[in-house]
């Protein structure tokens, strides 16, 4: 069994997925994990929570697959697909290899919130068993690149 540290993509406050205002994430339909309620400090850079290949890249969400096949989804805000990429600047391309902590997307959580959407960021261990995610970070403040949770797989 390996332990995969999954990092916080942005600075903010750690919250349980159950608090995310979207049933797909709150009910862990795509997998367990944690969410970060981002600091509202203007333009911010979301970083890669793990090292691996960028297998899916939308302006508002991305999936990184590690060398041994673990997929981690980072979703910047809720219902942000409706923004059609406006306000999101990508720094990598689909298929790129990224290191943990590398800049992926520049965005503005406060602007997302001002538009009436939650900027909360679910970070999901895709296809993971519910009990395989260990919450390392208690609910509270987290720095970008700090360990958010550990995935035993």
């Amino acid at each position: 069994m390996t332990q995969l540290d999954v990092l916080a993509p942005v600075p903010g406050r750690v919250v349980a997925l159950a608090e995310v205002p979207d049933p797909v994430f709150a009910q862990e339909l795509v997998g367990p994990g944690l969410a970060v309620d981002p600091d509202r400090t203007g333009v911010a850079v979301a970083v890669a929570p793990v090292a691996g290949r960028m297998v899916k890249l939308h302006p508002h969400a991305f999936v990184i697959q590690t060398a041994d096949g673990a997929g981690v989804l980072t979703h910047l805000g809720i219902d942000t697909v409706q923004l059609a990429g406006e306000g999101f600047e990508l720094h990598v391309a689909e298929g790129d290899d990224v290191s943990a902590g590398a800049p992926v997307v520049t965005w503005n959580p406060a602007a997302v919130e001002a538009g009436g959407r939650s900027p909360v960021i679910p970070v999901i261990a895709l296809d993971a068993a519910p009990d395989s995610v260990v919450a390392r970070q208690a609910e509270g403040p987290v720095a970008a690149g700090g360990v958010l949770f550990t995935w035993s797989r």
Binding site: V24, L29, V30, H58, A61, F62, V63, L73, H75, V81
Partner: peptide, 9 residues
């Protein structure tokens, strides 16, 4: 029908 990161809307 519209895709999102996790679902078909």
């Amino acid at each position: 029908i519209e895709p999102c990161a996790t679902r078909l809307r």
